[in-house]
Structure formats: C-alpha cells, structure tokens
C-alpha cells in the first residue's frame, strides 16, 4: 500500500464516520427516531405537537425502524467500518425497502413526499461514496456460511410477522389520512426479515446486526405489552413472544457468531484498502 492510497483511505474513513454520525443523529432527532421510539412510555418527548393517541404504537414501529435498526447500525459502523460492509448493505437495502413499500402501498403519498426519496438517495449515495470498501457491500469476497439456527429463527419470524406485514400493507393501501404509519410497520417487518437473512450468512458484521435485531424485537415486544390494544400492536401474547424471541435470538447470535479475531479483521481491512 503506497502512501497516497493510505492517506486517501484515512480521509475516506474520517469522512464516512462523520457522515455516519451526522445521519444517525438526523435519524434519531430530525426523523424523530428517538422521540417516537419513546412514545409508548413518554408522550411527545422532544416534540412540539403531541402525536395522536391512535398512532402511538405506529410511532414505536417508527422508532424501531429509524432509531434502532437504521441509526444504530450507522453508529455500530463507527468502530472499524470497513470490517462491517454487511451493516451498510442492510442500511441501504432497508431504506430501499422502506421507499418501495411507500411507493407500492400509497403512491399518492409517495408522490407528495418526493423530497424523502431525494433525501434518502443523497444519504445513501454519500455513505456509499465515502465507504472505503464499496465492492464488499453488495459483492462480498467473504463466502457466506449459512447458520441453520439463525435461518430457522428467521423462518419463524417470517411466519409470525407475515400477518402483521400483510395487514400493514392492506391497511396502508386503504388509508386515506396520507400518513405512512401502517406501511411503515410492514416495512419494519420486511426489514427485520432481510436483517435476519443477512445475519444468518454469518459474514463479518452479522453479530452487530444480530444484536440490533434482538434489540428491535425486544423493544417491539415491550411496546406491544405497553400498548396491547393499539392499532398495529402485536398484542399481549405477541409482545411476550417478541421479547422471548429477541432474547433467544440475541443469545444464539452471541453463542454461534463468535467475534472474529482482531488480526484477521484488520487483515481484511488492509486488503480491501489496497
């Protein structure tokens, strides 16, 4: 590795980290990932106008998607970002799922919210451009080793989430209030399933993504227990099941996806930087 390439790599790393922090903060604050995430327990935190009572669980879903899954995945990449291209893959595809769901279920709202498409496109392009190992994001050199247990757990999640996803899609399609609430719940389900698949590949970064999923399930379970009868809620039993699932999923990730040796990870980074 020559000096100029090394220098370029360092600058890219700095730039990526800066943007990651910026977009994570924007997700948590500007897009209200944090305030809506706390909505089941703290009403209208950091909000100028309180949310409607009926969308409190939807707000929790927004918090899980934007706050936990998207923003936290960017924060998780601050340490050794080049060793976690899987997280950036998830971040980019997750946003695309979100936008696709919006377009498919509520085209009128999608048209009206065109700026969201532009905003997300800019964010994704910037992150993609500043990432040092772009090639590894969608065409990873590391072979996937499918973890059967995690894949089975994802299959169970698919069975459990399918009713909520389908319901979210149907409700959003019939929603005339021009709010992407039901659809966001469906997008959350789809994003969680995609995250489950990525985690099951056992590639570098799967461990961090697995923990994020476990946290998201446990969070959604807790929100469901708090708001069992609210629209979109997973209910009492669904909440309990989601918490149990989150704990089991986290434990399986911890046990079966052992952290990679630092030297190997570093070696991988070096190779990619060259």
């Amino acid at each position: 590795m020559n000096a100029s390439a090394c220098k370029k790599g360092i600058w890219l790393g700095v730039a990526f980290r800066s943007f990651a922090v910026l977009f994570a903060a924007a997700g948590l604050l500007m897009l209200q990932g944090l305030s809506e995430g706390l909505e089941p327990w703290v009403r209208s935190f950091l909000a100028s106008t309180p949310l409607e009572e009926g969308v409190r669980f939807h707000a929790a879903a927004h918090g899980a998607l934007i706050g936990i899954l998207f923003s936290f995945s960017l924060l998780a990449m601050l340490k050794e970002p080049l060793s976690k291209p899987l997280l950036l893959n998830f971040y980019i595809v997750g946003h695309l799922i979100f936008l696709a769901t919006l377009s498919a279920t509520d085209p009128a709202l999608a048209k009206q919210s065109f700026f969201v498409f532009i905003l997300f496109t800019v964010v994704l392009v910037v992150l993609y451009a500043t990432y040092g190992g772009r090639r590894e994001i969608f065409r990873p050199s590391e072979p996937k080793a499918m973890n059967r247990t995690l894949l089975l757990l994802t299959g169970i999640a698919l069975l459990a989430l399918s009713p909520f996803i389908v319901r979210g899609l149907i409700e959003q399609a019939g929603d005339g209030q021009m709010q992407f609430r039901w659809g966001e719940g469906a997008a959350l389900g789809l994003t969680l399933l995609y995250a489950g698949y990525l985690t099951a590949t056992s590639r570098t970064g799967a461990r961090a993504l697995g923990y994020l999923q476990a946290l998201a399930y446990a969070y959604m379970g807790a929100a469901s227990l708090t708001l069992p009868d609210y629209p979109g809620s997973w209910g009492l039993w669904g909440g309990l099941a989601a918490i149990a699932y989150g704990i089991v999923y986290g434990a399986v990730v911890r046990l079966q996806l052992a952290p990679r040796p630092a030297t190997a990870a570093q070696g991988a980074v070096d190779t990619r930087t060259e």
Binding site: S162, V166, I170
Partner: peptide, 8 residues
Amino acid sequence: WYLSIVFR
C-alpha cells in the same frame, strides 16, 4: 388457519 389470519 394461518393463511386465513395472514390474509384476514
């Protein structure tokens, strides 16, 4: 039963 739940 499951499909009837999924598709309501």
